[in-house]
Structures are given as structure tokens and as C-alpha cells.
Simulated assay, not measured.
Amino acid sequence: MKLKKFTVGEIMSKSYIVSNNGKAIVIDPGAEGKKLYKYLQENNLELKYIINTHGHFDHIAANEFLKNKTDAKIMAHPKADLKFKDPKLNLSQVLKRQKITSPSVDIALNDGDIIDFEGLKLRIIYTPGHSEDGISIYLESEKILFPGDCIFASGVGRTDFSDSDFEKLTNSIEEKIFSLPDNTTFYPGHGADNIISSFKNRVWPALK
């Protein structure tokens, strides 16, 4: 398995490409689809899935480009589909005065679902709070988590949007993310990666 990290777009969102056996998954292609596609081509990777941790514009902006280029299946929580279609709900019209949309969800992901990808098993964890459609993706064999905007290396996702809820975010963090092994490395939707134990012991006590 190989993991490639990208920083994309004006908001400097994180996109990740997980590859194995010549196949790939891209997590949160938030912008700069050409950059992501170039990497796929240069490494002879077939893109199978596009997974969105939630439906905000800075995580979905390159969905359409990559799907058109590769015919990859878009995967996200069922509640993300409304954001994909509505620039107000995905915040592109509100924060950027642009109308960014995405093709519909091809495969809906719910809590506990397992994506079996080239011998890798990715478990879906429903983690609302920053966004009602928020999911995290856990790769147990590698002790890797992709939490989207639920948690960051030194903070948590905003909870001042219409479908945000700090109480739900707290539950997602304490009941779900903290149930994972402390030595799990997480790769968030923005900023640097970190380890759950560091977040749990140094970051979270100052925030809750």
C-alpha cells in the first residue's frame, strides 16, 4: 500500500491517494483535479473510488473532473448528496461566491460499512458534528484514519454552520475516534497529520 498526500485549493485542503496493486482511491479531491490525475497517470494507477468525508466544496470540487476522466465511483454518506447538488449547502456560494457542484453519490456509505479494496479493508465511521454527513475512514491494518474535518492536528472542525453541532462532534470524537488505538495516525482534511494519543492528551482537553 502507498499513501500520497496533496495540498489543494485556496483553502489548502488535504487530498489523499491510497493505492495498491495498480488501483487507487482518492479521498477528498477538493480542488486541482489535474494535479491528482497527473499523479494517477504518472504512476499507472486506475482510479476506482472517490471518497468524500463530507460534502463541503473544499472537499468535493474535483469530483466531477476525476469522475469524467476515470469513471470512478463516488462514495459518501447519503446525506452528502444534497450538498453535492446545492452550492449553498456545500458553502461554495456562501464562502466563495461560486457555484461548485458534484455528480451524485454512486455508493452510499453508512456507519460500519467495509470497503474491500485490493486486499485493504477500509471501515466507515459516521462522525457528524462539523457536518451532518461527516464520515471518517479507518484502515485498521495500517493504523491509519482519515477523519475529514472532524479533528485536526491541533484543533477540531468548525461547528458554526447550519448542520453543525458541537455536542455531536464531541460524541464523534470521544465515543468513536477515541475508541481506536492510541497509536493510530490520522490524516485530516486540513493541515498536518498527528497521532490520536497526542490529540487526546494534549489538544482535546483544552477544547472541550
Rank of each mutant, 00 (worst) to 15 (best):
Q93F: 15
P103M: 03
G155V: 10
F57G: 03
E140G: 06
A192G: 04
Q93Y: 15
I51D: 08
A76T: 05
P205R: 06
A62Q: 04
A80R: 07
N20C: 12
T70K: 07
K4V: 07
F178Y: 08
P205M: 14
I17K: 07
L145E: 08
D160E: 12
D106A: 08
I51V: 15
I115A: 09
G30M: 07
I177S: 00
L207W: 02
I135Q: 10
P188K: 13
K38E: 11
S136F: 03
F178P: 08
F57D: 06
D113P: 06
T101L: 01
S162E: 13
K79W: 08
D81P: 13
I107P: 01
S141M: 08
L207P: 02
G55M: 08
V105H: 00
P147K: 11
E46L: 15
Q93M: 10
F166M: 00
G9Y: 01
D113H: 12
M12S: 12
K79M: 10
D133I: 01
Q41D: 11
I195F: 11
I11S: 10
I11K: 11
F57H: 08
Q41G: 11
G155A: 15
I115K: 04
E174T: 07
K83N: 12
F166G: 02
E142I: 08
D193M: 15
S164I: 02
S172C: 06
L40D: 07
